[in-house]
């Protein structure tokens, strides 16, 4: 059959309007912020692009749509944690409020972007993301939903602006000390919380989220940067990070980063030994030539 793009466009043009999934229309107002577009659903609400009604600055407004106690508790926790996280690894927090019975949180509007490719770019990218994850773990928090769509980009300023990755959507973050027992049912999807393909098996099947499950997601992220075809020096790292047995993974983000930093170690040592040998050989040859010449 092989439908062409034109034919598909034709079918789409006759297609009935598809709902965007937004609960609020463009023009809805939350505090001083007027919605201009629905961006998507986050871990714990809906995210909209909005502009300040007086000064026209843009921001992202996340609105809690499910007004039930557990969801509200999570939303407040997300807002509090975002307001406490001052580092550039997270979106900047602006305000938190309530409008017409809906709680909302306003934060920096960031850009979506593509995952980097290439050994060095991926290594730099992962170091930056790991800085953010490390900070959460240091506070006793696990993210539970590390994936490409939760990594947004802040464009730098200056002569050569460089985009920096920012870890967004703290809607599913959880205290890493919390056990499975007594976990609110609103956290449970088909066996767990997180995104299939990124969430660790124990997280998706039994809702057991921990530092190890965040490490698993970081491993999958690394793998995706290489389109699931990582180079040899990364394969061992990714395999270990994404092991189905949590005890076999790196036990901290620092260990994961160390492995990345030293991924090329054996190759470098090999090259150094070879270089040393070659230099030694050249020196020997030079000595022999000089001796023969003097002789």
């Amino acid at each position: 059959m092989n439908l062409g793009v034109d034919e598909i466009e034709g079918i789409l043009s006759a297609h009935e309007r598809m709902p965007t999934g937004a609960s609020f229309p463009d023009g809805a107002v939350f505090g001083n912020w007027r919605v201009t577009a629905f961006i998507g659903k986050g871990g714990n609400g809906e995210v909209y692009r909005a502009v300040h009604v007086a000064i026209g600055t843009s921001a992202a407004v996340k609105v809690l749509v499910r007004n039930e106690p557990r969801a509200r508790e999570r939303f407040v926790r997300e807002a509090r944690q975002l307001s406490e996280l001052k580092s550039a690894s997270f979106p900047q927090f602006f305000e938190y409020g309530e409008a017409n019975g809906f709680f909302y949180l306003v934060m920096e509007l960031l850009e979506p972007g593509e995952l980097p490719s290439g050994d060095r770019n991926v290594a730099r990218f992962l170091r930056q993301v790991c800085d953010a994850v490390s900070e959460l773990h240091a506070r006793g928090i696990v993210h539970r939903d590390i994936k490409p769509s939760n990594i947004l980009w802040r464009t730098g300023t200056g002569i050569m602006p460089v985009a920096v990755p920012v870890l967004a959507d703290l809607g599913l973050v959880k205290d890493s000390a919390t056990s499975n027992a007594g976990r609110p049912t609103s956290d449970i999807t088909l066996g767990g919380v997180g995104t299939p393909g990124y969430g660790a098996p124990e997280q998706m099947e039994r809702g057991e989220a921990s530092v190890a499950s965040d490490i698993h997601a970081l491993g999958v992220l690394a793998d995706r940067c290489f389109d699931s075809k990582p180079p040899r020096t990364w394969r061992r790292i990714i395999e270990r990070a994404t092991s189905s047995i949590p005890e076999r993974r790196y036990q901290s983000v620092d260990d994961f980063l160390k492995a990345i930093r030293w991924r090329n170690l054996w190759r470098i040592i090999g090259k150094a030994v070879l270089a040393f040998f070659l230099v030694g050989l050249l020196v020997d040859i030079l000595i022999v030539v000089i001796v023969i010449w003097l002789w």
Binding site: M18, T20, T36, F38, G40, K41, R49, L109
Partner: peptide, 25 residues
């Protein structure tokens, strides 16, 4: 998500590209 939303609005829901661009900034 933003990419999907832009596509939905312009290719499926038939909104004008300029309007969609303005909505998303």
């Amino acid at each position: 998500s933003r990419t999907r939303q832009v596509f939905l609005r312009v290719a499926v829901n038939g909104e004008k590209p300029d309007d969609v661009a303005a909505a998303f900034g």
